[in-house]
Amino acid sequence: MTLQTFNPEISTEPVIEIKQPVITVKDVNVFYGDKQALKNISLDIPKNKVTSLIGPSGCGKTTFLKCINRMNDLIDICRVEGEILVGGQDIYDPAVDVVALRAHIGMVFQKPNPFPKSIFENVAYGMRIHNLTNSKSELGDRVESALRGAAIWEEVRDRLDQPGTSLSGGQQQRLCIARAIAVEPKIILMDEPASALDPIATAKIEELMDELRKNYAIVIVTHSMQQAARVSQFTAFFHMGELVEHGKTDKIFTSPGDERTQNYITGRIG
């Protein structure tokens, strides 16, 4: 691997359960200074599925999400041990180009954060900096394709030159998803993507996730049990930095194996 690329081989064969994981996490420990935030996490993320990370505040689920695209690099006191393999490559290998990695693993945040630019530029920006297009017309086509992929094209096609910030919260979030998928990632990470949205906008994001998973692996952090149950096929429950339980969502929400999972998802004092 060179510093300029991050292009692991990911099979396009459909996944059966987690036999061909897109992401393999092995014995990961994360420390913020002296405090250990994640303890011996091992977890496989399948492709073409949505994996929900659930758990009480401070359990480490967002830390885990940020490990997957090395967002924790931005925190000086953060130290990550263990292996996170994407397509067989360790993303913490010093040779990995973090910018290329983050194009490969897109992220959508809790609060929509469009650039202070036009709707068109919000989507085109990533493609430009990654040199993904050769001509202006190709750029236009790919912006349209990304906006269509994020189910917002029909709402913005006549006002592509208007600021991204002029859109409603739900539209801004879908614009951010369009921005993430414009650079053709394999994996999309979402950190409570609908927590600031009303039920209709939330439903649109959830419907979009179901559509997006046909082409991507999605990992979502959510505080809404119902949302995890609705959108994901796999669920991982974190508690006090540990991965307590990971399994099929329908199993977790009907008969979880661990009492701590049960206590959390049923709203009991654990």
Binding site: M225, Q226, A229, I252, F253, T254, S255, T261, I265, T266
Partner: peptide, 9 residues
């Protein structure tokens, strides 16, 4: 309540 797990059962 939208119960899950043991509550749902």
């Amino acid at each position: 309540r939208q119960p899950v797990a043991a509550d749902l059962r």
